[in-house]
Amino acid sequence: MNAASVPPSQPSTPSAAMIRTLGLVATVCGILIVTAYEGTLEAVAANKKLALERAVFKVIPGASSVKEFVVGPTGVQPAGNGVPEGAVKLYAAYDQAGSLKGLAAEGAAKGYSDTVRVLYAYDPEKQAITGIGVVSMRETPGIGDKIYTDAAFLKNFEALDVTLSADLKSLANAVKVVKHGGKQNPWEIDAIAGATVTCKAVGKGINESAQKLLPLLLPHLDKLKAGEPARPTPHPAASPPLSKRGQGGFDSGSASSQRLNPPQPPFEKGGSRASHAEGAAS
């Protein structure tokens, strides 16, 4: 493996030859990589768009197209190259007629074993969160994954109040996770008994994201409602959506609940597990 294994008697190769060979190999490799990159570019982009749409449509039913925006102190721009400092990425969903169906953004917080990332839908009319989906998490299967199987928990997000306070600087009432059965206000999330840590992570992620996003967003809502024509597909390599290259994937690198219960169709199996979840009350 290392130089030590080379017998000392072996005549050494002139550097020129070494550089020549390395150059040759590097050229071959470069060609291979670039070919592969160019060749897969479109397919990858299509895949990513599909994945994003699937995720957003899940939380905003009835939508048929998605556009990405970046909301910052300077206003709302179509997503371009990366997200500038202090800005938040936002997905706007439109129906077939082209009118705004809803907005979606990502929230993330440290859960039981790793970061829990959720995509939440925001309805500007109701000033409420109207649905969530899990982007990635590594919570304990059977407990943590109730956040997308427990019907009672998901009910919290049918109309979770995120009205802004009078000064438009923050939420009127911070989104709060309360103990199971303790929900009294529309801005509270009723935790799942036994999966409190994960629930708290969801609440925390949404709260942090919303506290940051909404004050920035509201002044510019009109811009989004207009459905300002943006480029049909953002450049995938520059700003991959949802699965921002590897984010979901890397974090779920090892044993991940996601593979057994892929988050893409999170709500479909809710029914079968809901009763069980209740039973696990602990």
């Binding site: 060749g39 990858v44 599909l50 994937g249 892929p262």
Partner: peptide
């Protein structure tokens, strides 16, 4: 990535 994003996410790093 081109074939399946789901597999790509699952295998990760």
């Amino acid at each position: 990535q081109a074939i399946s994003l789901a597999v790509y996410d699952a295998l990760g790093a």
